[in-house]
Simulated scan of single mutants.
Amino acid sequence: MPARVEYDVGEAAPHPASVGPIYQSMIQRAFDSSVLADLTTDDLARLLKGISAHSTRVDLNQDLFASGEDLVGIMDALRWKSPRMPLAYNRNLAAEQGAAGRLMAKIG
Rank of each mutant, 00 (worst) to 15 (best):
M1F: 10
A3H: 05
R4W: 03
E6S: 03
D8Y: 14
V9T: 13
G10D: 05
G10R: 02
P14I: 05
P14H: 08
H15S: 10
P16L: 02
A17C: 10
S18C: 05
S18P: 01
V19R: 13
V19T: 12
V19F: 10
I22Y: 02
I22W: 09
Y23T: 10
Q24H: 00
Q24I: 02
Q24E: 03
S25T: 04
M26A: 10
M26I: 11
Q28N: 03
Q28L: 13
R29D: 00
A30G: 01
F31M: 05
S34V: 11
V35W: 07
V35F: 07
L36D: 08
L36Y: 14
L36Q: 14
D38P: 00
L39I: 08
T40N: 13
A45K: 12
R46K: 06
L47T: 09
L48A: 06
G50P: 02
S52Y: 08
S55H: 00
S55T: 11
R57H: 03
V58K: 06
D59E: 12
N61Y: 10
N61R: 13
L64Y: 04
L64E: 00
F65P: 04
F65V: 11
G68Q: 04
L71N: 12
V72M: 13
V72R: 15
V72T: 15
G73F: 09
M75N: 03
M75F: 10
A77N: 01
W80V: 07
K81Y: 10
R84E: 12
M85V: 14
A88V: 05
A88P: 02
N90C: 11
A94D: 03
A94H: 09
A95H: 13
Q97T: 12
A100M: 06
A100G: 02
A100T: 07
G101N: 10
L103T: 06
M104I: 12
M104W: 09
M104V: 14
A105S: 12
